[in-house]
């Protein structure tokens, strides 16, 4: 098996087709690209042609949003076969998926839905990751979710859950710093403590994205992981904590809704480059 991530410890962005020409003309700080696997499972046409061309110039990270690794049943074999086909021809630098479920009884719900953290769900998620890694012939990264609620029957902290799954399967982890901030705010947890407890030696990639602000029934803040705006300042501050613990890592800016013009996204990548450079200086000092 290949290693979990061969991405450079540098900024990347989630690729959007509307940025194709501007990105190729001036990538700025961007050194790699992430694509959503499901958008490149057609048989041909422009999406595949663009991806082939981009892959000649940039390392590509394939990020799945539809494998339903946290589902009650094993990953859909047809979908896994499509994923294998994509990874086989593209040979990406990394493949990652979410600690979440999205498919139930043949229906795909197009959202990342939560699961309780118990020994039983550790075993189930680990079995599914074993199967994915076996079929793909590569290690994968598993991403921490954004949480809006908790389960009464959870018996483990999320960091312990992720560590247990990684230990059992050998998979790497993708630490989404915005998700940590969103979940900690929504559930009244300590984001810095989450970062301290996170198994940084497993991390193959970091994510940053924007969130929206709302409130729950009791007036408590409820942050929504919308990927529709710039990364919030406290999330950049939390990133510094993460980099302080784990050192520089491949760092992705996600912007999936209300997608801005290329210079705006490139500026976010520039800010990510500064954060990585500062962390490298601190580590060397």
């Amino acid at each position: 098996m290949t290693t979990a991530s061969e991405l450079p410890a540098a900024p990347g962005v989630g690729y959007k087709p509307q940025h194709y020409s501007a990105l190729l003309a001036d990538p700025g700080a961007v050194q790699w690209l992430e694509i959503h696997a499901e958008n490149y499972m057609g048989d041909g046409g422009r999406p595949i042609a663009q991806l082939r061309h981009l892959a000649e110039r940039f390392p590509i990270s394939v990020h799945g949003v539809g494998l339903s690794i946290g589902g009650e049943t094993r990953p859909d074999p047809d979908h896994l076969a499509r994923l294998k086909h994509l990874c086989d021809w593209l040979n990406p630098a990394s493949f990652s998926e979410h600690l979440a479920w999205s498919t139930h009884d043949g229906a795909f719900l197009n959202d990342l839905l939560p699961l309780p953290y118990t020994e039983r769900t550790v075993a189930r998620v680990a079995d599914h990751i074993d199967e994915v890694q076996e079929v793909l012939g590569r290690r994968m990264l598993l991403e921490n979710p954004s949480s809006y609620l908790a389960f009464a029957d959870s018996t483990m902290r999320e960091t312990d859950f992720l560590r247990a799954v990684a230990d059992r399967t050998g998979c790497g982890l993708l630490l989404d710093v915005n998700n940590v901030f969103v979940s900690a705010t929504n559930l009244g947890l300590d984001a810095r403590r989450y970062v301290e407890e996170f198994p940084m030696d497993r991390v193959g990639e970091l994510h940053l994205g924007g969130h929206d602000e709302d409130h729950d029934d009791h007036g408590a803040p409820l942050l929504i992981d919308s990927h529709g705006r710039a990364v919030a300042d406290p999330v950049w501050a939390l990133l510094d904590e993460v980099l302080g613990h784990g050192g520089p890592a491949p760092l992705l800016i996600e912007w999936d809704t209300d997608v801005p013009d290329w210079p705006v996204l490139a500026a976010e990548a520039g800010r990510a480059r500064h954060a990585l450079a500062r962390a490298a200086e601190r580590a060397a000092a």
């Binding site: 499901e38 958008n39 499972m41 494998l67 859909d76 047809d78 979908h79 229906a107 795909f108 719900l109």
Partner: peptide, 9 residues
């Protein structure tokens, strides 16, 4: 008719 697969296309 929820999607029958994650291929939104």
């Amino acid at each position: 008719h929820p999607p029958a697969s994650p291929l939104m296309a």
